[in-house]
Amino acid sequence: MDAYSQFYSDNKDRLYAYLLRMTGDAPLAVDLVQDSFVRYLKRYGCQDAGSRALLFTIARNAALDAIRKRKAVSAEVDDCIDPGHTPEEQVIQRQTVSRLLKAIDQLEPQDRELISLVATADLTYREIAGIFNISEANVKVRVHRARLKLRDIMA
């Protein structure tokens, strides 16, 4: 497997999860994942193993462009449900995911992005700081505050 294929395999699911939370639209998130990898490959080629932070920056910008063009629709909760569970467990999972996504939607857009990156992208605070062009300490403070807001909303 070449370096780019490995980079794609390692990051596609995380990128999709981030974009799904950011846009709230599963088909749009799939399109944005593809678009982000195409833009990355076209602009930066197959150099080394790739930069996850750069990929997420490209994806973030593409998502912001798409959101500007059309309003986000609520997330596809069924995409987050594990089919291996009993029907009762699936209902509980569906309700929990729905409640969490609604709570995340109530956050400010930047808080929503930060929470999504921390939860799904497996990026370091330094890499997230590079995406937002802020200091690493600022990222830590904002993530902490966003988590507190999310906890209050969920309570």
Rank of each mutant, 00 (worst) to 15 (best):
M1H: 12
D2I: 08
A3N: 10
F7D: 00
L19I: 08
L19T: 02
M22A: 09
T23R: 06
D25F: 09
A26N: 12
P27C: 14
A29M: 04
A29H: 01
A29S: 05
L32D: 00
L32R: 01
L32Y: 07
V33E: 01
V33Y: 01
Q34M: 15
Q34G: 15
R39M: 09
Y40M: 07
L41Q: 04
K42V: 14
Y44K: 03
A49W: 10
L54C: 12
L55H: 02
F56Y: 03
F56R: 00
I58F: 09
I58R: 02
A59I: 08
R60S: 05
A63W: 03
A63H: 07
A63V: 09
I67D: 06
D78V: 07
I81S: 01
D82R: 12
G84W: 08
P87H: 14
E89H: 07
Q90H: 14
V91Y: 03
R99L: 10
L100I: 10
L101Q: 08
K102N: 14
A103V: 04
Q106S: 11
L107C: 06
E108G: 11
R112G: 05
R112C: 04
L117W: 03
T120S: 09
T124V: 08
Y125F: 14
R126K: 15
R126F: 15
I128R: 00
E136I: 03
A137K: 07
N138E: 13
V141P: 02
V141D: 11
V143M: 03
H144P: 03
R145S: 13
L148W: 06
K149C: 06
K149G: 02
R151Q: 11
